[in-house]
Amino acid sequence: MKRYKIEEKVFNVLMKVATGIILLSLIWILATIVYKGLPYMSWDMVSRTPQGGFYMGKEGGVLNAIVGSLYLAGGSTILALFISLPVVLYLNVYRRKKSAFSTFIRSSLDILWGIPSIVYGAFGFTLMLLFGLKTSLLAGIITLTLLIIPIMIRAMDEVMLTIPKGLFEASYSLGATRFETATKVAIRKTLPGIVTAILISFGRAVGDAASVLFTAGFTDNIPTSLSQPAASLPLAIFFQLGTPVPEVQGRAYASALILTLLILAISLSSRYFTKRYLKNKI
């Protein structure tokens, strides 16, 4: 008995240390990015595209990458929403009862969710060759859409599962069809949760690099049509860090800070919507 008490004490300390290490690594990462990136932050960074000789240390900023990332993430999030919402509604309204088929759907989505983004990138590349597309905003958006569909569906599915059965029964007993129940009850009830799911997917799309590497390409200009290549923040960071010029590497840190702030903003607003959701949960 005494042995266990000592053991418990030892492990209690170890557990706190482990939790501390995990949290500390997050703080360390954020602190490093802020510390390294802040000195190189300037208004030029976020308001100008790369000018001539930018990658040798001349003037300019990463506006091309910021706008490119927002285009890529925005486009893919909208496309993914159009595909995810019907799937989620099907799972939660039309097939509310657990069946072998619904388990199969969820399992397939789980597997899709686990596939690495580089594989999506390679697959997007084969699609591009098949349709004769060049690296472009459109190809990037399509690849990212495939990547975030499972993320979005899972996140929405989780909130929809919490809708009480009684709510559906009430809706049906008033004579509503399943489709009406889906649009007027299920979606409305989980709206903040759906917004959270959209934000999470958007965040993933902004931060992902491996899938757009093959498909969206990179450019110093802001794309004006879907068929032009588009830059993205993660790739801008990667390429700038790869140059031997310290000034440009510094800009990589600043770009990393911009990306981190963007992700934190998305993360915080999704937390806000989750809280709203929890508040009006029955």
Partner: peptide, 24 residues
């Protein structure tokens, strides 16, 4: 306190981990 921080960690893009890895 802890769970939101882990959520944030989950959302950090791969390239940020990479740049931190190079620096630290």
């Amino acid at each position: 306190w802890v769970s939101p921080l882990i959520d944030i960690l989950a959302g950090i893009p791969s390239v940020i981990f990479g740049i931190w890895g190079v620096i630290v």
